[in-house]
Amino acid sequence: MEYFIHLIIIIGIYLILAQSFNLTLGLGLLFNLAHVSVYAVGAYVTALLATELGMGFFGCLVCSVLICGLFAIILGAISIKLKEDYFAIGTLAFSSVISALLINWKSLTHGVLGIPGIPRPEFSFLKVDFYDNINFLVLTYVLVAITFFMLYLFFNNFFARTLRAQSEFRQATKALGKNTRLTRNMSFFIASCFAGLAGSLYAYYINYIDPSSFSLTEMIFVLTVVVVGKPGSFWGCVFGTVFLVLLPEPLRFTRDVPLALEWLFGMPYPQISAIPVLGWLITPVVSFLLYASRPSVLGPMRQMLYAVILFIVVYFRREALFPVQRRV
């Protein structure tokens, strides 16, 4: 049960992270590969302010959000100058710079050692113990609800229309009086603020952060979520997040599969494998699952799972996934 609550909290954090990414990639077709790095910055800002300055929850949250919003300025500057392929590389480079700073600026970030001992939030006006995960879950989903309300607006109002239009034919959008540059910058700002929020929440939950939690793997995960849920689809992103967070979880329990089979068949496992045809099918599958659930292999296995799913989804939707951009 505890573990289930943990999963729900993780889903909540990723919902904020993925939906904000969905705004820039799904609606605006802007390949901001630095999104996860901004998330990392949010986590580090909260971690440092909470542990070194003892700042309270709202203070850390707001600082994370605002500082990450500032990063949007850099992203905007990159995007003004650059077209699609250059922009993606630019954001990749930017995220690598942030990674390098997180790892090497030891006096600030403690490098690869990370920052431990981040306390759970405390409210002076409310006597709630957030070390109890159920309470933290409520806090998480309050933030998710606020995030989703605001993002829902930006997915359905004039801003969304302009963002979608400029992703298709930028000049035609300008010809209708829209300032596409401002629109793009705003989308980075909004997405980065929410990435910062997610990062802050993550720091408060896991209570320890280090650079390895924010690698390219996270980026692939978020990208897969958005692609699986259909880029630009608000509820599709929700589905994608839930689905992809839960999908590899059964791998943790595959050690119990032989036991389950023994219970099912009513005979010891070696006998089951000896059954002609059925046994020959079951044995390799179970062996593979047992191999895959070894702790040292679990991490890369999940990574591979996401990459394969990403590829399969992209392959089957390749015609319609990203519409071709037009220009004069």
């Binding site: 229309r161 979608r164 239009a165 298709e168 034919f169 000049q171 035609a172 300008k174 010809a175 209708l176 009086g177 829209k178 300032n179 596409t180 519409p323 037009r326 004069v328």
Partner: peptide, 24 residues
């Protein structure tokens, strides 16, 4: 003036390769 300002000033443009937004 940038293109969007000219548009607001009263300039309308219909593009040769169709400027409508197909996905909308």
């Amino acid at each position: 003036y940038e293109p969007h300002k000219r548009a607001i000033a009263g300039l309308g443009r219909v593009f040769q390769n169709f400027g409508i937004f197909r996905e909308m």
